[in-house]
């Protein structure tokens, strides 16, 4: 890929933790690029450092060594307006309505009021929640909360959206449905998306490239280009090509096949 087109560049990134059992290497010499407008997923078993990596990219955690740059500038802290994060378990303010939750980061970022409201309404409509804007999080289902969270990420109109297991709390049916919806939104907005997930099916279904990580120390095993045609529909998940890729990934990270079996049967809905 051409260097100028990279939205995210990671160069020999390492992260060490001090723990009671001595120093732990959470990330060891991570190198990868995410091209502008690409959909890239990071998969791996728990403890492989994928969430740590995402937090470093978001500027929420410092690295021990190496470089991370986003859009050509080094990441030193949160970059509001440039990078937004969609968190695990929605992470909405329980005292704010769906609308106010989406407005909150825009208020923090001093976006003029009219523009704030325009964006919040636009993105809540995009995720299909135009009738739920005045509801509080506890009045929304898990899937709806996650959609508010995605609308909140997109409404900041960043170049890059980082997603940390955004569908982890959802059941399989909703997980695939939301993934499909995310593809539609991604195609409509042209954002660069980096998604962390532990679901191989989700990663393959959504991504241009799947980055496979392994634990102890957290490192990249392989970067797999997914050449399945786009636009992708649910039924691609049942295709032989899809199955081949998934099997390859399984063998690579040696997770229990049973753990992922449920995900391969779910999309038959």
């Amino acid at each position: 890929m051409t260097a100028a087109a990279a939205a995210i560049e990671v160069r020999s990134l390492s992260k060490d933790y001090a723990s009671s059992a001595g120093p732990v290497q959470a990330l060891q010499k991570i190198d990868f690029d995410v091209p502008q407008g690409a959909f890239v997923s990071i998969v791996g078993p728990s403890g492989c450092g994928k969430s740590t990596l995402l937090q470093i990219l978001a500027g929420l955690l410092s690295s021990s060594s190496g470089q991370v740059s986003v859009g050509g500038t080094a990441v030193t802290g949160p970059a509001p307006g440039k990078i937004s994060v969609v968190f695990q378990d929605a992470t909405l303010m329980p005292w704010k309505t769906a609308m106010d939750n989406v407005l909150f980061p825009l208020e923090i970022q001093r976006i003029p009021e009219r523009e704030r409201i325009r964006r919040a309404e636009h993105y809540l409509r995009l995720v299909g929640l135009e009738n739920e804007v005045q509801r509080f999080p506890h009045q929304l289902s898990g899937g709806m909360k996650q959609r508010v969270s995605i609308a909140r990420g997109l409404a900041q109109e960043p170049q890059i959206v980082l997603m940390d297991e955004p569908f982890g709390a959802l059941d399989e049916q909703n997980r695939i449905k939301m993934g499909h919806e995310l593809l539609r939104i991604w195609e409509a907005t042209g954002k660069t998306i980096l998604l962390v997930t532990h679901s191989l099916t989700e990663a393959i279904f959504l991504s241009d490239t799947v980055i496979v990580m392994a634990p102890n120390p957290g490192r990249i095993l392989e970067q797999l280009v997914i050449d399945l045609p786009r636009p992708r529909m649910y039924d691609v998940i049942g295709s032989p090509a899809f199955g081949n890729i998934r099997n390859r990934l399984w063998r690579m990270i040696e997770i229990e096949p049973a753990e992922d079996e449920a995900m391969s049967t779910a999309p038959a809905l």
């Binding site: 929420l60 949160p78 968190f87 992470t91 303010m93 970022q109």
Partner: peptide, 18 residues
């Protein structure tokens, strides 16, 4: 106070006061 809300706030660019 949920830690994840504070982390989210930081990612939005909120200052300590905010």
């Amino acid at each position: 106070v949920p830690v994840n809300l504070v982390v989210a706030g930081r990612s939005f660019g909120a200052t300590s006061t905010e």
